[in-house]
Each structure stands twice: as C-alpha cells, then as structure tokens.
Write a protein that binds this DNA or RNA. Structure first.
Lengths: 403, 403
DNA sequence: CGACATTTGTTTGGCTAAGAAACTAACTAA
DNA sequence: TTAGTTAGTTTCTTAGCCAAACAAATGTCG
C-alpha cells in the first residue's frame, strides 16, 4: 500500500517508478550479489519490470553487472552489485573541539574520514561555517579527483535543529538561531547538491539504522553520551523529529527532585545523574571540554584497575541511566536502545546495572522486547549518519540524474 | 513522493489509484462542499483525473453531488459532499464496569452510542467476548436495518495489545494473552468485515487526530486519566505503536524515587503521583472501580466549593502531571498533549499548575511549540477512536467494493 | 553427441490510469 | 446578442506494469 507521509499528496506514474527503483536498489544493497530473477522472485515485481528498472539503475551507474553464476542447471544468471564508485555522500560533524568529515560511497564504504581540531566552544557559527566550508571544499575536490559525483552534504550539530535545518540553540557551541544550511550553501557557492543540517543524535540514530548491527530494527533509539544527553528516535523505519524537530531531548527528564543540580538549573535531570558530567564531577571537576576524552580514558584505566570508588560511581550512574532508559522504553517500545558516545568505553561497568534497572521498570512483559546495546560505530557515528542522511534520500527514490 | 512504510514494497497502478482516491476523499472530507474544479486546483491532479476519481467514489457511494453553486461568473459548479449514508464503522470500548459501542458514518457523525454495564473487572476475556459479540450483533443489525454496510469493527482495550491485536496484559480487567480479535471474529461468525483490537489510549489519540480540535496536528499525544495513565502517540500523522505495540506506557515513568508506592510495587511512578488514584487515595481510599465516576464528581463539587485541602491536592497532582508531560514533550516534541479521561472534569484545577511545570521543564525554546490541552471528546474517546480506526483504513485507500 | 529440461533475461502486446488540450456547457455582464 | 468566465467531459497521448511468448545458455540423460 502506498501512503504519502506528508499529507494528502497525489501520486502518479513517476512515483511508481521511483518507488520501484528504490525497492530494487535496496534489495540489491541487502542481497548483493543477486540476479534479476532473484529480484523479481523476492519483490513480486514482474521480470520484465525488473529488467527495465535494472537497466535504468545501470545507466545511472548505481548498479553494476559482475560475472555469471557458477555451474547450475539452466542459463547462468548475471549477478548484480551496487556500484558505489561514481558517487559520494558527505557527512560533517561539528563539535566542541573538532570538526569531522566523512565521505562514503553508495554501499556505505568509508572513503575518507578526516578530523580537524576546531575550537567550536569559542567560535561563532559564522567562523564554523568558514571552517566547515574549507574542509568541505577539500573533501569535494578529493571526491571530484576520484571522479565521484557528490550527492549531498549533511552537517550534524549538537543542539536543537528545527525542521528547516536552522540551528535554534547549541548550548555547548554557544550558538543561537543560525541558518547553517543556508550560510554553508552560500559559502560553497551553489554546489549543485543539497546541503542539510540536523541534530547529531538524530543522525547517529540514522547511522545505526543503516549501518549498525541492528539495522533490521524499524524502531530504535540512539542515546548520545557526551556532556549533554540526547536521543535520536527511529520509529516505523524513519527518523521521527516531532512537530518542530526537537524530539529526543531526554537529557532533562527529571529523575529525582532531590538529585544534584543540573546545568539547566533544575535538579536530578537524567543528564545530571547519568551524563558523562556526573562521572567527571567526581573525578575531574575542572576538566575543559577538550580534555574530556583524556579524562574518560583515565576513568576507564581506574575502573580496569578495580578501584572501588570508581566502580561504585559507575554502577550508580548505570542505575540512573537504566531508569532513564526505562522511561524511553516504556514510552516508545523500541526494539533496541543503543548507547553511544562516551558510554561506549564505559559500557563494561555501566551496562549490567543499567540493564537490570531498565528491565525491572519496563511494564511490558519481557521488557517489551527492548534490548539495551552499545554502539559499535565509534565516535564518528553522527558524521556517518550525516552521510547516511544523503544516501537515504537516494534510497527513497530521488536518484541522481541520468548520465 | 510515495513511500511504502512497511519495508520495500513495490508499487503499481492500483496503488496510484488508491492513493489518489484517498487524496480526493480526504480533500472532500476537509473541504466539503467543494467542486471537482476545487479538488483539481488544490491537489494538483488533472481535471480529467479528478472527474474519473470522483465518478468512482460516487459509484461506491462515498461521495454525493449536492446542488449547484449560487450566482457567480461562469458555469456553476456541482458541489460534492461525503455521502455517509450507506456505511458505518463500529467502535467498541471495554472497560472495568461497562462496554460502550458507537457507530459513525463516513463523516464521523455519531449514529448511535450505547453503553451497557458489564463487570469487566471480574469477568474473563471469554465472557467479555460473549458480551461484546451480543452488543455488536445488535449494533450490526441496527445498521443493516438502516441499509448501511458495516466497514469494520475495532475494540479498544485498556491494556497492552501487541501488533497482531492480541491482548497481552490488561491489569484492570485481569486478562492475559487473549486473542480477542480472533475470538470475536469467530463469535460473529465471519462477519465479512475486519475485526481489530487496539489499546484504548492509542485509539483515543486517533479520535483526537481525526475529530478533535487539533486534528491538523501531525504530532500529538493523548493521555488517559483513569486509574492507570497511558498515552497514545501520533507522530508524522500516524499512530506509532513501537516494536511490539506497547508504546505510550508512561504510567510507570519514575518521577520521584522517594514518592508514594505505586501498585506496580515501585515508588513515585507518574501514575502514583499524578493518576486519578493519587487523588482518590486522599478523598475516597476504599472506592471500587465502578464508583470512580461518582467519587470524581464529589471531588469536583468540593473543588468548586473552594475547599482548601482539595485545591492543594489538585495543585500538587497538577504539578506532578506537568513534570510527566514535560518528559513526554521533551522526548517527542508533539504539537499538543491532550489530557483525557477523568483529567477532563478536573482540568480547571489541574491544568494551570501542570502547564507551568511543563513549560518550565521543556528544553526547547518556547516549549518546543507544545501546548497542553484538555480533551473535548468526552469519555467515549476510545470507542470513537476505535471507529476512527476503521475509517482510517478507508481513508488510506482500502475502499469498499463497488456496488 | 543430441534431444530435452531448466533457468535467465528480453521482447511483444495489452492494459491501467494520469495528463494535455480541445471542446461543450452553463452561467454573468454589458 | 455577444463576449467573457468557469466547470466538467472527451479525446488522445504517454508512462509504465504485467503476462506470455521467446531466445539464450547451460546441465542431464539416453
């Protein structure tokens, strides 16, 4: 059944074509190498239709024929695979102390991953645009040199990004009301591909949804573990941004009215009791943002050494985290909640407690089938998701123009 | 853009037709009376296509031509309206002390609204099926007498209902693992229309989404105010049920580890500090479920009289409720949170406090545009939503067969 | 080895349904 | 009466899916 998801929009033949092109593309992505006959059999599309769709996709160099099948009864099949080579999707993540750029091909293979230090915490949005544009230009020129067409660029920002891609507030960067997408487009002088901006947690969720081990889950939540705690929500296979794009702001869910003071001014917020800050408040109260990674390494070292107070601290944080995740699981019933950011290195000491708390608090029998897992995508999840955002629009049928 | 929302499903012409029929149907629902020319102009469909679609819908008696327009320049337009008369959708709500059945026509006009007392709290699911089937048969025969074709029947159950319509747990009814949809279909002996089961909060949310004053909101949350507190979540225009169908279980979000004990055994759950039970625990600790309505009336009377202790109690509950709703608003960023059930009569004394707490706690600027409102649909919201569930499948293109 | 079975992918023709443009219809205004 | 305006239909074209026949390439078995 076809359903337009942004209100009553009529459909026509080009929509059918786009839908079916996307179906074939996604099928090959998941089942490569496969033959036209496989596609027809599995999708229910007619063989003739599949041939036509595949021809179109080969013309656009999204698919490529590889060799034939080995000895079997009947005519050997021509196998098809994704042809990543002529395209690239760019994701950029801006953060307190660095900017990361990644480029991936259609398959999601990482083509480059550049990190460049940048004083995000003390720079204006304008300065960030200049820095991002410079980095982006280098990435674009590298891609061009490799004869790849850039399909799009998405920027991941730690903060509230509205549905139009304007950054409303980015507390750690000190930005307010910045039209990042517009300014960056201008700075790149009409680059000929879409430039988008989205929240980092949203994009990390997208990365998990496309590349992670739980990519089959239609409902998942990604939780960032930085100084701030945010979430990206995928429900029914798509990112859900809410009315204005501010969904997933779980950091200030109040878990304990008698808890410690949060930087938002209230008490006992999830962020204050289970954020990375809650750990560092005990171990390195004066750490600057750029030292976070080092400090966390130190916490990991001490936990490995079995230091009692650190272990107790982590258990405590884990329990609070579990309580917060129980709220998430109760409200959204996702298949999986994925912990990211600095929760990843700390996971060995956090997750058991968190899981126990969570499962004990989820109302649905068997926890509603919701698991608590740790991200395997590393720190670059948001940048990777930003690139995935570009691929998503290809997957939903907006194919690059024919050669 | 067409997007199939349950995985990669190919599209063909019948999908285009179904989509466009649904577009026209929805347009007329929202803009009746209107002419074919209006439809073409607003939807972007070609005039010829609209004529063909409208002819089809008139054939199926979903639309009807009314008179012509009054004197204007040019040929007068034939106006179109929804033709509710030949169809009916049935919604049934089963509860602790009664079963409600409503029937609506295509426009959502209520055709009947029958309430029948039923000891849900002490009856088995099997007994409930017998009672529901008896009631349903009377409704069906009444509809048949009125020459209406029944398009479907949906049952609203206060409890966890999985994605297949099985009731996993319904604490207040004492049910577990009941295949209500299957059993009711059997009891009705192959009724020739779909029989579905869903959670009451989900369906009430659907009722608000279709009939309520905020029907334009693509993102809304409906909160039940009964002994239990649950939510139905609409995001991007559709009900979001989560992985197994258990989304919206906000009643046991833990707001205060030092709070009063909840019936789930833990402390400080939203339900325990802001549920209706939290009020009655102070005013009528021994009330049985069937006396709830009376007891709430009594609370309203005393609040109207300005009794200090009652007002303080309601303010306190309102503040806790506001904290819970802040968690909802932060996580989902809906356009509106709608309070239902017994919160409605108590709203005059609850909402101001709740709003204040909520707005103060929502991180997004301006509360993320999220308002707190009170349901205007009355106690029958879930039953009405159950009927709306049936209309939804018509609206998404599954039209009844041609005459 | 050759006839036959099996499987793949293409070609042909038919059908559905949307769109463009011309046309008919029914009115107002002057 | 004539011109202008808007509504809705008719006719024709086109996109694109499907079914069925067919061509191609291989294995199998007598």
């Amino acid at each position: 059944m076809i359903t337009s998801h942004n209100g009553p929009q009529p459909a026509d033949f080009t929509d059918v074509r786009a839908t079916n092109l996307a179906v074939v593309l996604r099928f090959v992505r998941e089942n490569a190498p496969c033959s036209r006959a496989d596609i027809a059999a599995s999708t229910g599309l007619n063989k003739a239709t599949v041939s036509s769709l595949v021809a179109d996709l080969i013309d656009r160099r999204l698919l490529r024929e590889t060799g034939l099948t080995e000895h079997r009864v009947g005519r050997p099949a021509t196998m098809l695979v994704l042809d990543g080579s002529p395209y690239a999707a760019i994701g950029i993540e801006v953060n307190v102390d660095y900017i990361t750029a990644v480029a991936v091909d259609l398959k999601g293979e990482e083509l480059l991953n550049w990190r460049r230090s940048f004083p995000g915490g003390t720079s204006s949005a304008g300065q960030a645009v200049v820095a991002m544009a410079a980095l982006a230009r280098r990435v674009i020129s590298r891609m061009t040199k490799e004869a790849r067409q850039v399909l799009g660029l998405t920027v991941a920002v730690p903060g509230l990004v509205d549905v139009n891609g304007n950054v409303r507030v980015a507390p750690n960067l000190g930005w307010r009301d910045a039209d990042l997408a517009g300014d960056l487009t201008k700075a790149l002088r009409d680059p000929g591909f879409p430039v988008l901006v989205d929240n980092d947690a949203n994009l990390a969720a997208l990365a998990e949804h496309r590349f992670g081990p739980h990519r089959n889950a239609a409902n998942l939540v990604y939780v960032t573990g930085e100084v701030g705690v945010g979430a990206g929500i995928v429900m029914d296979g798509r990112l859900r941004r809410g009315g204005q794009g501010y969904s997933g702001e779980i950091g200030h869910i109040e878990l304990d009215p008698a808890g410690p003071t949060c930087r938002c001014g209230r008490r006992g917020c999830l962020e204050a009791v289970a954020g990375i800050g809650a750990i560092l408040a005990h171990t390195a109260p004066d750490a600057s943002p750029s030292e976070l990674e080092l400090e966390i390494d130190e916490v990991v070292r001490r936990a490995r050494n079995g230091e009692r107070d650190i272990l107790a601290l982590l258990e405590d944080v884990g329990r609070h985290l579990g309580r917060g995740m129980a709220a998430v699981a109760n409200m959204l019933n996702p298949e999986v909640v994925i912990l990211g950011g600095y929760y990843v290195p700390l996971a060995p000491w956090l997750v058991a407690c968190a899981e126990e708390e969570m499962y004990g608090r989820v109302l649905a029998p068997g926890g509603g089938g919701c698991r608590l897992e740790v991200s395997t995508l590393g720190y670059g999840a948001a940048a990777l998701g930003a690139a995935a955002r570009v691929l998503d629009s290809v997957d939903s049928g907006r194919l690059p123009a024919q050669r």
